[in-house]
Design a protein around this nucleic acid. Sequence first.
DNA 1: AGGATTCATGCGCAATTTAC
DNA 2: GTAAATTGCGCATGAATCCT
Length: 339
Amino acid sequence: MNEAIYSIHREAGLCLDVVGREVKKGNRQLDATIRIPEADTQLVVEIKKWAPHINLGAVINRMNHIAEPGQGMLLADYINPNMGERLREAHIQFIDTAGNAYINQPPVYIYIKGNKPKVNVVAGAWDKTGRAFQFTGMRVVFAFLRDKNLINAPYRQIAEQAQVALGAVGWVIRDLVAQNFLLEGRKKNQREFANLDRLMDEWVEAYPHKLKAKQRIATFTTGDPGWWKAIDFKKFGALWGGEIAAARYTRYLHPKDAVVYINKEYMAKFLKTARLRKIVQDKHAAHRVDLIEPFWRKEKDSGKTAGLVHPLVAYADLIETGDPRNLETANRIREEYLR
DNA sequence: AGGATTCATGCGCAATTTAC
DNA sequence: GTAAATTGCGCATGAATCCT
């Protein structure tokens, strides 16, 4: 953190005062707060270890939540030019240890990009992901989030529900305890959740690369925006995710791109019926259709949500896009279905 | 005893480094 | 710049241990 502040001073001659670290504000835990003397404003800081392909949508969404517009600041080890540009478009201020920054606090305006990262970015002081948010852990956590009672079920049952090996369950639970997402021993042999919101945030953020990427079957495109309306998902054992699920859950969105959760065996049959085309690399497709292999254990469809993925998955799909309208819709889903 | 949980081990994947 | 080799890590497995 000090390194980033030093870097911005070196690059732009701007001084930042650290007001507090690990501050509590309401029910949110803030990494730090910072003051800009020149603009006489105080910013809420979120510290992130930066992977080159982090889930930007999740970060933008979280920044919008922890702070009023323009009052938040992201601090990271390195933010590459592409991501910096996208953050600026989303009006998220940031600084990194390489000296890149975007700050818009009139009269202060800074936008620096193109500084290269240091070769050895030292890990350790930065939070690491841990087992709970790896490929297998993600399945377990999802199973927990879907059915909150599952945390007190026997390991065998958890493994069964999450579709993971028995031995993996213990790893994940102990990691969750270590990260204060689970409390053990309040009552005899009972576990209970803590920081459920944060757990959901973490899961959603890790979802695209840790789980979804590995489940991806293929991506297609179509020119017909209403193509999906004619599809009878029951025939293919498929479920709608992403924008289409969101549209059904909230009636607030006109879907553009689609995410379809479908088993591989049904793919050929599905493609034939849906008349989708292979995606062309260099052209921006009008309507993307991602086919993803489901990772959860099937449960019975019920009522009006039949044919849709669990709200959390739809939520994660939307967040991933980073699109403002999608983020707004995502938050409606969270309010309505994920409390 | 019998199921629940933890532990030790080796496998497989993937990222990183080295050789070509 | 590409291919091969190495390393490291997460995971599943199955047996050992714990608990009731």
